[in-house]
Design a protein around this nucleic acid. Structure first.
Lengths: 352, 352
DNA sequence: CTGTTAGCGCCTTCAT
DNA sequence: ATGAAGGCGCTAACAG
């Protein structure tokens, strides 16, 4: 550890670094240049002469230097990180979105802080609060509805924010999503066109899931238009997991509650798949006895028999587009569109 | 000798903070205390008198102060972050592991950096290198085989490292996993016991997927024991995605290559499910004509008809246990077990 | 193209 | 229980 050259100090020099005592100063010393030159070589190799660059690169290798981004962040006021906040990581279509986000950001040198809220608004706020302390250069968040304080913190952060998987006329900053309301209306219209007339909406409604609420509203609005005077049928559960077993349970619940139902509109392919498979077990013919629709176009949807009518969402693309918007903002490039509607696609298959 | 202060400010003071000009000093001023007291109040409220604490909390609220963790990190040499490295986020059972990890770490104040490697060793190394610069207080990584340099960086980081989803006698630091080799032997033995005797191993083998390699080896070893002299049958693809369509393709490939096959051992439930559904389409009876086994006990496995024989892995638990080990290390608590084998469970269902 | 200087915002150490 | 001093490792600003 060649760092002793200040004999005039009365106190022993502070040694707090437990790990990696190698600093930029060590590299600079080894290469015979100033720390500034090392810093420049690391961030913009072209700004240093070829010979100097080589010496520095060699010094980096010899010393096993690993740059400390916390110091860099503090000095430059750029953290080179993006905070991503999603409801759940597992069993979730949002994983694809995060992969898309990450696929675009990592090659640009940005790293991703990931947190999940379990669909609880208070947890979302706490997470945003906590992640703000990391001073990310951008935020990515699922959903367009947040607590007052959460919104406030995001706005005060002074960095780009992308809300996603929904649309809103009053975004915090940027939005990449689609209309859950319109998507569900499309499903209802499709079923009505096919002649189904006793529709039931079924799904898991977590308190903090504004996408599910939008979908329910889309169902109700379309139902009112297509079946005026008919009482809409809605069956939801709040605490169940998003698993196929829940879909099977919901099927049973719908059949018990509204036996006259001839089509079930599920909020997710996971639930719809569970229901289709249970129908097969029960001898209920899909779609002859009962039509079933899903949401999300999961892998399974096209492989089930009957194959599942559903709404395809470009989940990965949401992540990639969001990352591109964030990058543009973070690199001070112009962003023309503040709200990007990526749309959706109704995939009519055999279950309806 | 104290350095002289320079009262002659010839230059204007630097102002680099674009965002959140509120610092601890502002809070301290508002509360009429020193920054030190604010710092203490934030990290250990009990170390400050009740009245002072209240004034500080009020000042924090009024100023909208958000602590800067980068500065905290630099000064304390603790980042309160954990880096997590997984092959893929989406369509992946690892998402559950990350959720488990995150569920344990977030409440303790740690935040998670997430990166994915797409099963490419070089990307893993690059990611580890890059994440090291964030000076995480711990690493979590899927797999037990890494490049020389990657291993070296992890060791030099001087923080706890958990490798997972496999076992090794020479861990970098800690391991939480199970034997993929033993799991696959168990599957083969089960099939052999049931009277199947022309087994084919089928799966996606990405170059950097050491779990898949271990599984293949387990298959081959068990096959050699149970069917001495019989040439083992292996059908793998390298570049296909882990989706059901690939399972259907593999089924076709196996039937074309080894028509005498009476049982297919897949490396994943996703593939096995695709194969089962295709068998249903083709009129191939499972398990009468062909037995099929999966791996991972995904949600779908129990709902398929026939239901899928598979190996259950406590994916979420791997994450939680890993987090607990990391926490123990990071908080200087004793860790007795360096290698934790969480085992696996063969679930015999109707497909075999 | 390279070096010097000062400071990013917080925490550790020491003193009271 | 609180305050003062200094430095964590790096980079912006300025000079040459």
């Amino acid at each position: 550890m060649p760092r002793e050259s200040v004999p005039t100090k009365t106190r022993a020099p502070r040694r707090r670094s437990a790990t990696s005592a190698v600093t930029m100063a060590d590299v600079a010393a080894a290469a015979g240049v100033s720390t500034q030159t090392v810093s420049r070589a690391l961030r913009d190799p072209a700004s240093v002469s070829g010979e100097t660059l080589q010496r520095i690169e060699e010094a980096v290798r010899n010393t096993h230097y690993v740059q400390n981004f916390a110091a860099s962040h503090l000095a430059s006021n750029r953290s080179m990180t993006v905070a991503a906040i999603i409801p759940a990581i597992s069993t979730s279509i949002f994983a694809e979105t995060i992969q898309g986000l990450s696929d675009v950001l990592l090659p640009e040198g940005y790293q991703v802080f990931l947190g999940h809220t379990d669909y609880v608004a208070a947890r979302e706020e706490a997470l945003i609060r906590s992640l703000s302390g990391r001073r990310p250069d951008g935020f990515f968040i699922i959903g367009t509805q947040h607590t007052r304080d959460a919104t406030h913190i995001l706005k005060r952060a002074g960095v780009p924010v992308v809300e996603s998987w929904g649309l809103t006329s009053r975004p915090i900053d940027l939005v990449v999503g689609f209309s859950n309301h319109a998507a569900m209306k499309t499903v209802v219209n499709h079923l009505a066109d096919r002649g189904y007339h006793r529709l039931t909406f079924a799904g898991v409604m977590k308190p903090g899931d504004d996408r599910a609420k939008e979908r329910r509203k889309g169902f109700l609005d379309a139902h009112g238009e297509r079946f005026p005077g008919v009482e809409p049928q809605v069956v939801t559960v709040a605490s169940n997991s998003m698993i196929m077993a829940t879909g099977a349970e919901l099927l049973d619940l719908v059949r018990a509650t509204y036996p006259e139902t001839d089509a079930i509109v599920f909020t997710s392919d996971v639930l719809a798949s569970g229901a289709v498979l249970r129908c097969n077990d029960l001898g209920v013919r899909v779609p002859a006895d009962l039509a079933i629709t899903g949401f999300g176009n999961y892998d399974i949807a096209g492989h089930l028999r009957p194959s599942l009518t559903t709404v395809a969402i470009a989940s990965r693309r949401i992540g990639m587009l969001s990352a591109e918007l964030l990058l543009a903002r973070m690199q001070n490039k112009p962003v023309t569109e503040r709200v990007i509607d990526i749309g959706f696609e109704l995939l009519v298959r055999d279950s309806s």
